[in-house]
Amino acid sequence: MNKLMTPDEIAGSLSDGMTVGIGGWGSRRKPMALVRAVCRSPVRDLTVVSYGGPDVGLLCALGKVRRVVAPFVTLDTVPLEPAFRAARQNGEIAFTEYDEGMFLFGLLAAAHRLPFLPTPVGRGSDVLRVNPELRTVRSPYPSPGGEPEDLVAVPALHLDAALVHVNRADRRGNGQYLGPDPYMDDLFAKAAERTYLSCERLVDAFDGPPQSLLINRATVSGVAETPGGAHFTSCEPDGPRDEAFQRRYAEAVRDPQLWEGFRARFVDVDEPAYQREVTR
């Protein structure tokens, strides 16, 4: 079994208007090589579902996005993601904004093929006001207080495709994480019709404890080996976040002149050229 693909082949398998989930969290272990490939491809009008970081920002900057579904978009050490911010402030993209836990329940619901999962969260906040499609359900059981409770029914976050970056993978599509946090990557894979993995290193067999085997091949359609493929986000223990490059990205996004040069050198180039440029 061999599911090896190139990042460009993976990007080429996406079509306009798709809902695409992206693993990682903020500026951590994002499948940036795959995101860059999507940026170079002709695809457009994506709905991007993500605990958002520069994946969301870069796709917004390249005009690939119609709607973002997220609890936040941040670069962590740079709190506000400048490209997402600009796209929102220019009125270019819609934003379905959920609480972090609601978003998790949306992924869990989709992963379990449930239509929704109930949660009290959202009540009293403007999440319900800005997402008028959200419905509440009356619990069939009494709450500890005695009265049945009205709960927010978080709809399943069904994904047409998911993009996830892991430390190690094999050709069959099994994926292993070696860092301190799996984020929600397995849930993205389970919530998606098709999942594409990128990995720091392709292996024939896995070392390490079995619980580090986060993604199993039954959910994976394609695998790409992309050393440095999370750059400039963190990918522990293979590498930390490239803070200097992240700052450079953030500055370039805020300045149209800088952006042209940045884009020519770091976006409109294939992955090997990108990796050469960032280590120069």
Binding site: G52, P71, F95, E97, D99, E100, G101, V121, G122, D126
Partner: peptide
Amino acid sequence: LGVRGAPG
């Protein structure tokens, strides 16, 4: 940022 975990 977005609402993050504030509602919950």
